[in-house]
């Protein structure tokens, strides 16, 4: 804060985009609340003695149950504030190539780490899964669909050539048989007698 204070209010005017002539005091609409807040942030409103808050109105209304006092706490913290302020005010412009400055500027490179180790892998995984979903899972579903259609075509071929083939074959066989036996029934008495005698002989031979 001390460094901010020095950089903004001390030294040469540095802002190149807005000339010095345009810089002006804020109006009371802004100045009033800020002044009020500044006034109220002074320590005496809380406790007149900066080193001990024992007399504070706060503890009169809400008395602390356990009285554990570290007498050194207030002086040490005030001392630390003063030391920090002094360092900040005296600090020279740091070198931008220093590793601490770089770390601080890029939030300790955490964003980079998150990007490469969390965001990027998640996005890649998402794309891979989306492809898997489309190709493998949906491919499986479509594969089942396609193979059902192929099976249907096979069944059609089977039905036509084998199942129907048996039916047609039976019809064909019947007609062939009919054609063969038709030639026997030729109306000649001689051939009928010959067939009857041959038949009789065959029966006799089979019986004997």
């Amino acid at each position: 804060m001390a460094r901010q204070w020095r950089l903004i209010f001390f030294g040469e005017y540095r802002n190149k985009t807005i000339p010095l002539t345009q810089a002006h005091e804020p109006n009371w609409l802004m100045r009033g609340p800020v002044a009020l807040l500044a006034l109220l942030s002074i320590g005496i409103w809380f406790s007149i003695n900066p080193l001990s808050a024992h007399g504070s109105w706060f503890f009169q209304i809400l008395p602390a149950l356990e009285e554990v006092s570290f007498w050194w706490l207030a002086p040490v913290s005030i001392g630390l504030v003063l030391l920090g302020g002094w360092i900040g005010f005296r600090m020279t412009e740091p070198r931008t190539d220093s590793i601490f400055v770089q770390l601080s500027l890029s939030y300790g490179f955490l964003d980079v780490v998150y990007y490469y180790f969390v965001i990027s892998p998640t996005r890649k995984l998402a794309i891979v899964l989306s492809r898997t979903d489309k190709r493998i899972l949906d491919g499986l579903v479509n594969g089942v669909g396609v193979s059902t259609v192929v099976l249907a075509h096979l069944a059609r071929v089977l039905d036509r050539s084998v199942v129907d083939g048996v039916v047609n074959g039976a019809a064909w066989l019947a007609s062939q048989l009919g054609r063969m036996t038709r030639s026997v029934q030729n109306g000649q008495v001689q051939s009928y007698i010959t067939a009857a005698v041959v038949g009789l002989l065959l029966v006799l031979w089979w019986i004997l």
Binding site: T122, R123, L125, A126, I127, L129, S130, D133
Partner: peptide, 10 residues
């Protein structure tokens, strides 16, 4: 998780 990741990739 799977649905969420897929949604991310669309």
């Amino acid at each position: 998780v799977y649905g969420g990741l897929n949604a991310l990739a669309q």
